[in-house]
Design a protein around this nucleic acid. Structure first.
Lengths: 392, 392
DNA sequence: CTTGTCTCGGTAAGCGCTTACCCGACTATG
DNA sequence: CATAGTCGGGTAAGCGCTTACCGAGACAAG
């Protein structure tokens, strides 16, 4: 059937030896020209470069990594909700439910990863991405394997339990996202306190809402705790009723938000004037569920999110939320990780001669906890007028 | 400042030599136990495993790759729209425009990548992701570098020009997405003809629309051509007016769709009853622009998309589109690539003994062009009644 | 002319694994 | 009892790079 199956035959990529032979020099010279070391003579340089161009030589990553002890790859690991069924062939006809489909939990994570990737490219690094599923029984092994293919790791929220994290971070540089810095790991996060505080004040002062609920994310997430606290404090200081508790427990996913509301509605519970969600995903589920029960947002109940993921502005009503510089979060995490990697590799050198103490210091001082600013984005779901919605 | 800067000190991960020493065996035995070769004695096995556990040994990826000639990493490259400003510090206040922000071009690509990653994990592979920006002047070099860190490459639409692709694919297995198979590359895509045909027939027969425009994607994209043709043929055979031309040229992004409509509207051009967009992104921009001019969708103009990305159902009105099994597209691409990688590595062996011709055949026969089924998803934007929109 | 210094190539020793090959110990066979 | 065959462990040769080290030539100074 195939025209020429033989044509699929691959030829081995050229090695540095091939280049050396063609250029008539030793492999050391090739390496030196390519890496700009030791200032080779112009003629040598020309011959090597010509040979490289002729053969289309690009050095093998593994060999380079092994020899130079630098892979120029950073790993990023996130938590994934299981998939499976649809891939196994069944066409899951029930998947039409808007909140059952959690594909969009992609959003936040993926935008961060994009930020990491862009920053990495600037430094000639590549990104190795991996996910662990929620069960995560073998998460540790999987992360370890990835670690040995990288120079350092960036871990999204709740990928590893603290003990495992500590163990891992003893062997390889680790930066966490939306976690907390430890003795051996750095962390990058958005400014939950300030952003959520601003949002809460807006709801209380500008809209005059007297009852506010917080629909939580994962209970053990530092982000969740900080956001909840910020709302609680603003409510308390303004004498506004703060609603929370086990019924208001979500999971950062649209389905979690929808489910909480559905349960509340099912038992005919009283609902507050405003629902502050732990993140945009949750708000999305909440708005969907409220809409399908005919409850008007923001007329009857105001809803807000956190993150400002791209879909937020395409919802009806457009979602009021707190913007995090999502892509910057990723880029910052990479920059931090890279400085840790650099420190680590210097560490081996400079055996006794402690002269560069200053430069050394500079590296060590790389902050272990970086907090990026956030800000309120007022759109419609909080009750702000349709300022620019321009419907006819 | 730092409590204990010294504690950041990393210890080198253990090597196979450390394991061998602790277990009191040779490194060969360690390797054999770990890789299950040559059936080591039970006692040996136990000692090695104990040492591995004690030290927390995980083999170094680079060394393993170099020696085994298998990296267990596949690369995936996609095209990225530039970012830049916001990361450089400026807070780009004008970014509120819903269609200017192209973050969501993430969606389709990222879902595919997710599919690749999941499939890869099953085989113990990891994903190396990289992007090239639209200018793509050094795209070739970047892709080459990635290629040498991987066993094979999956390329999204329009990453490399055909000549470069051919050159690359001679050295490393390559699978393209939404492209066309060549002598040295395989390709995976959705069934554009069937899905778009079904959609067009729905608009024509079920809704009775008499004028239909096709808002195109990139002119040189095979997907775009196939989709356009499908619509054109259905229109022709039904005697329906098919509108197209340079004014109906988009770019697969929301901004492209919005801009086309804006221009059309600006010059007070006549608009058809239905606009079939090359993909969901484009439809999103079109709907946004129509809405801001007070044109009712689907009342005055019906709009449809292609892909069924997650946001599609959160739009108002919900977007009628053609569903591609996006995640499966990625998973299939990986499976295909892996079979190519396997073939390639077998190639070196079996020098003369051509006995296994059948098995060989089986591999060679791995399809070079895989087409996954698509299907119409009727929602609201085509004019179908709000069947399950369940307002109170 | 000798000697010291500097430049720039080549030689070879790894980097941490996998695996071909070898060898001793044991078992089955004549 | 001698011999072939099997089993399992050790030794060492790479995999394709980087780089420490050496040595040859050019040049300046003594």
């Amino acid at each position: 059937m195939n025209g020429a199956p033989a044509s699929t035959t691959q030829q081995q990529p050229p090695t540095i030896y091939d280049v050396a032979r063609v250029a008539g020099v030793s492999i050391a010279s090739v390496s030196r020209v390519l890496n700009g070391h030791r200032n080779p003579r112009q003629e040598t340089r020309d011959r090597v470069l010509a040979a490289v161009a002729e053969l289309g030589f690009v050095p093998d990553g593994a060999a380079r990594a092994l020899s130079a002890r630098l892979k120029e790859v950073v790993g990023v690991v996130f938590r994934r909700v299981p998939w499976g069924e649809s891939h196994e062939g069944a066409d899951g006809a029930g998947a039409e439910d808007a909140v059952a489909e959690e594909d969009e939990s992609l959003q936040f994570t993926d935008v961060i990863n994009r930020g990491i990737e862009v920053a990495a490219q600037r430094r000639g690094y590549n990104l190795l991405v991996g996910s662990v599923d929620v069960e995560g029984h073998d998460a540790h092994r999987r992360v370890m394997t990835m670690a040995r293919k990288c120079d350092g790791l960036i871990l999204h929220d709740r990928v590893l339990e603290p003990g495992r994290l500590a163990q891992l971070s003893r062997q390889v540089p680790v930066v966490t996202l939306a976690g907390v810095a430890t003795a051996t790991t750095a962390n990058v996060r958005g400014d939950n306190e300030s952003g959520m505080g601003e949002l809460a004040r807006h709801l209380i002062r500008d809209h005059g809402y007297l009852t506010i609920a917080y629909l939580a994310g994962h209970a053990d997430s530092p982000d969740n705790l900080a956001r909840r606290l910020a709302v609680a404090e603003e409510a308390a200081s303004a004498g506004v009723m703060f609603v929370h508790g086990p019924q208001w427990q979500g999971n950062y996913l649209a389905s979690g938000g929808a489910k909480a509301i559905r349960n509340l509605l099912a038992e005919k519970a009283w609902l507050p004037r405003a629902i502050v969600c732990a993140n945009d995903q949750t708000a999305l589920g909440v708005m969907y569920e409220l809409a399908s029960h005919g409850i008007d947002v923001p007329g009857q109940i105001a809803v807000t999110g956190f993150d400002d993921i791209p879909v937020a502005r395409h919802l009806r009503p457009q979602l009021t939320t707190v913007r995090q510089p999502i892509q910057d979060l990723g880029a910052t995490a990479f920059d931090l990780l890279r400085s840790m990697i650099a420190t680590r590799s210097e560490q081996g050198n400079e055996p006794a001669q402690r002269e560069h103490e200053e430069a050394q210091r500079e590296h060590e001082e790389a902050q272990r906890e970086v907090v990026l600013p956030t800000r309120l984005v007022r759109r419609e779901s909080c009750g702000c007028g349709a300022a620019k919605a321009g419907g006819s």
